[in-house]
Nucleic acid binder design. Sequence first.
DNA 1: AGTATATGTTCCGCGTTTAGACAAATTCCG
DNA 2: CGGAATTTGTCTAAACGCGGAACATATACT
Lengths: 407, 407
Amino acid sequence: MRKINPHDFKVARRGTSREINRQIALNLIRAHQPISRADLARLMNVRRGVASLLVSELLAESLIFEGAVGEAVGRGRRPTFLYIDSRQRCVVGVDIRASRTYILLTDLMGKQLGVVNSFQTSKDIDVLTKDLARRIKQTLGDFSEVGACEGVGVVVPGMVDPALGRVLHAPTLGWRDVNLRDPLTAAFGIPVHIENSGKACALAQLWATRSDVVASANSVFVSVSDGVGVGVVVNGEVMRGRHNTAGEFGHVPLSIDGPRCSCGATGCWESYVSNLATLSRYFGTDLSEPKPREAETASFTVEDLIARARAGDAKALAAINSTARYLGLGLASIVNSLDPARIYIGGEITTAWSLIEPIVRSALRERTLTDFGGATEILIVPAEEHPRLRGAVALVAAPAFAAPMVA
Amino acid sequence: MRKINPHDFKVARRGTSREINRQIALNLIRAHQPISRADLARLMNVRRGVASLLVSELLAESLIFEGAVGEAVGRGRRPTFLYIDSRQRCVVGVDIRASRTYILLTDLMGKQLGVVNSFQTSKDIDVLTKDLARRIKQTLGDFSEVGACEGVGVVVPGMVDPALGRVLHAPTLGWRDVNLRDPLTAAFGIPVHIENSGKACALAQLWATRSDVVASANSVFVSVSDGVGVGVVVNGEVMRGRHNTAGEFGHVPLSIDGPRCSCGATGCWESYVSNLATLSRYFGTDLSEPKPREAETASFTVEDLIARARAGDAKALAAINSTARYLGLGLASIVNSLDPARIYIGGEITTAWSLIEPIVRSALRERTLTDFGGATEILIVPAEEHPRLRGAVALVAAPAFAAPMVA
DNA sequence: AGTATATGTTCCGCGTTTAGACAAATTCCG
DNA sequence: CGGAATTTGTCTAAACGCGGAACATATACT
């Protein structure tokens, strides 16, 4: 039961019904392709005539195309199959992280084209812009057969205002209130969308078209890495909040008297489960220390730690198990406050999932109020799926499929 | 940007545009009454003809009525004013709490009729049903001039599935998986809606028509009482979650090593800020004790404590200040995770607001990530406004004004 | 009394869904 | 091999609702 905002509503115009049904048809084709007009009409519960008209409109805009005539199911005329037109259209996804920046080229459906490219991140916006422009041009040159680029999606670990195209605060990059979009747009000559990485990951899962997993309209993506990024999907929409800062579960405390966090507060979830926290635990460094990593351990990553744990290093296993427990306790806060249908987890820690899953699960159960809360589905998103890059791509590709604003 | 759920969508039919515009018109009349057809057309940005037709449809259903001809603004024909028709229609709100049950009669706009009635709550469903039926019949009899009763809204401190009409778990009442709606419907002969009290409070604020406060489409209601109940509104809709348990911020921890909470876990926000926690702090009782209140202190309430604090009792003030600080720290978790435009606070603690506001605010600022987060608007809802009862009423009155499901 | 202005109603045009008929394509079956 | 049955896709007429403009009504100003 949604309330109509009497200060910001949208009246239904003559074309509104058409617009709604057009988007529904487009989404159904996306979800079920290949599909015939007749099947589409059956799914939509409308006459074939209507479906036909909607399809011809989508064809005219070349959002979809007619493929080969399909095989007949029984007897009768064979259907002509419809597909989302991802030919000759591509999207660039960019993932800016503290150390490196990654680039991925995909088609409109998110199918990966070529390999993931990366280079060292410069924290100077001008230099980074130039680097990115060169790399993107090069990537597009390598795949000239894919046609025009629809846009570039950029994902940043920090608070972002997508409407203004500004990075409000990205601590690991040292950016504060920086206009990232306009310089990039100017340099690329292609529309640029920017977004917070946690929200983008949630968006990517929402718009994913893996047949085995039905995207949930109520889910949370938790990315455990240098920090903890969280994206929340409510009613099929990424939750933004009043100032675009919703989803900062990383700074909800486990214990307000806990270790100092990079945000200035103490005992944040992030200060218990970030990669740095896990490593510090292993090396026995004080968690409150801002730079606990010695020179000798600087190149030692969580992946290395996990490898040692798997190899039988008891201290490494203990460190990871500790992280697992805190991860589960924090997830309980998410379950209690949001009650999502599903939680996705990404980040380096996922490579240890088979080791830690029982611990995470039992910690989750320990603090959730109901049995179904404790049984909330948890899905691992491995690094090979590049959730952040897929999210960046979704920033560009998804709007064409979004529901129209109505009422 | 909302995704259309390919498994649960609604195709636009021939009457969909009408339905949308009808609800918009109804909401605008509700928000701006008294209002003329011409003004309505201007607000909706449609021709007067369309507005006229929508109005005549609403008139035919007697959802609205034409009042006296208004005063002319300048020259020209005088407008006929339109009003929501709350004549001859009333709603009963019921607030079931552990100790007492409250009843309120209002008209469709939520205007209070008569006084709030209350009686002792029986935890036996059959007895409670009989008690309620008698009281409601009596109340309706006292106000026979208000006409037919549209329905009864019932609010319960616990998890509720409104669709099934069941109370999943209400610890203070000792109910677990109880069908509350059907016996009540049978006894009253009127439609009954049940809901969790925190969610209902949030709903009440969302649908409130106080001219000074524009209801926010992104808000949180925090009710601090025996427990901590929270209702969350996202995009003009109360967040339910997968199992109707969203919003349990009361059991998000401040410190996982903190005092034991009634839920079984430790260090929940609730165990720091509930009335019991404040009282225990004052009496120096162990917070972990399940029954810390002595016989002599059994009748001593938080209101009494606040009175002592105002009278200069340093120990009482310290106890309340402590609660205030923890309240602010917990609110920070809500701000960080949801970034609402506004937080409403209800419960006994609000009577001490002038004492504690600075402490709450500074604690909030201490743990919020951004300056605007720390400056999140906090509004007190005093007990005299009966937020829970208004929420119960909104359960019945609001659906008629809700946005139609589309796409 | 005449003019200007605002409100509310009515009528027609046009786009969209709805319902049904029809042609085309293909398999089944005698 | 040919007709019947079935399925797909297109087309047409009807119903419905917005879009725009004209018209009647009501009031104030001059």
